[in-house]
Simulated assay, not measured.
Amino acid sequence: MFIEDLDRQRWSFREARQHVARLILRQIELAGTPPSGAQGAAPQWYRSGDPVQQAQEIAMRELLIALKDGDLHATGRLSKQRRERYASGSSSWDFHSGHQEAILPHQWREGRFGFQENLELRDGEFIDIRVPRFAVKAIWLDLPPSPGGTEPAYTTPYLELMQAAIGAFQMSDRAQAKKENLVAWFLEQEIDGEPVSENLANAMATLIRLPSSQRGGSRRIG
């Protein structure tokens, strides 16, 4: 590979997690179990049978391990200016840099990764965390073709998300989830790092339900 051919696209942490989670979910669907070494640490929601959330949690754990061990390198926008919020008693950080800078492995080990995908340190905070796409794909390879040598069936992130919803709600021809619950679930998901729009959520919720369910012909579940 020549340097000018290098894939310089950088993924957000969320995009990287979605990529890893999709691979894990596919492995769970093919094998019926999480990847080797992950099952023993499966929390309560896995035992209740939510493969989508299981895949997301395993993906988060694997990414953080790779970052802490230095196998994957990330950058972020740093702030060292603390802002006190006297009303709530909490604190946050202001004036984050406009430039990306490297996050070192020891900072991942010592810091606290938050729900907003920020890394808070004792003396600062990284936001807008990015990882090289080529590095993520080099560590978490796409699944190989089936043993017969045939290519896997064609799919798209939209189809995969709809299949995930069917599994999450345990839908069948005798048990149809309520459309409003499906829409709410879809709105919490992302496709290729982008939030699902309300129009798309409504469309997907309609497509995975039976036509008869629109007329009240099937038993509804949560």
Rank of each mutant, 00 (worst) to 15 (best):
L119G: 02
R26F: 03
E188D: 13
A201K: 00
G149Y: 05
P144I: 05
S213M: 02
H106A: 13
Q18D: 15
Q214D: 10
D142W: 06
Q163G: 12
A42T: 06
A102T: 14
P145R: 10
M1N: 07
Q56M: 10
I129E: 00
G217S: 07
I139E: 05
F113N: 02
E190T: 14
P132Q: 06
E84D: 13
Y86I: 11
T206E: 10
A138F: 03
Q163V: 05
I24V: 15
S97W: 01
R112P: 00
P157N: 08
K68T: 06
A31F: 14
Q116E: 14
F134G: 01
I28H: 03
F169A: 05
S218W: 00
R215W: 08
V183R: 08
A184D: 15
Q189K: 12
I166M: 10
R17Y: 02
P145K: 07
R47D: 04
I208A: 03
D192E: 15
S97Q: 08
G217K: 12
Q44M: 11
F134E: 08
N199T: 14
W93A: 01
I191E: 04
L141A: 11
E4R: 09
S97H: 08
S218T: 13
R47H: 14
L63K: 01
S172A: 10
P144D: 06
A153C: 04
S36H: 09
M162N: 02
